[in-house]
Amino acid sequence: MLLRILLRLGEVQVEFIGRFQELFNSKSMRVDVESETSLLSLLKKLGEKAGFDVVSHFIGSKGELMEEYSLIILNGKAVNLGKLSEYVVKPGDKVVLSPSVAGGG
């Protein structure tokens, strides 16, 4: 247990950008994950912790991908929102929740 706290094992570091900073009222958060879990489950877990529907920022009510709205970066890689349940998150991973890129006037 001590080792786990020292090394922050079993935790995923989640960082927030833009709107997510306001929604979570924080710049980052650590989330316990037992072992491997899907990115979708992680988002649900985050939602339970924070008390709002986090998934709805990425997948709309009709199942549409909210790609113009939000994006996720998992260990430096941009995530395809269509495959949230396929990405595996494990202790030590870094996740960023952010509004999507705003380019091109």
């Binding site: 994006l71 970066i73 890129v101």
Partner: peptide, 8 residues
């Protein structure tokens, strides 16, 4: 808004 996203 892009600054932090791009940075990440």
């Amino acid at each position: 808004a892009n600054v932090l996203v791009h940075n990440k």
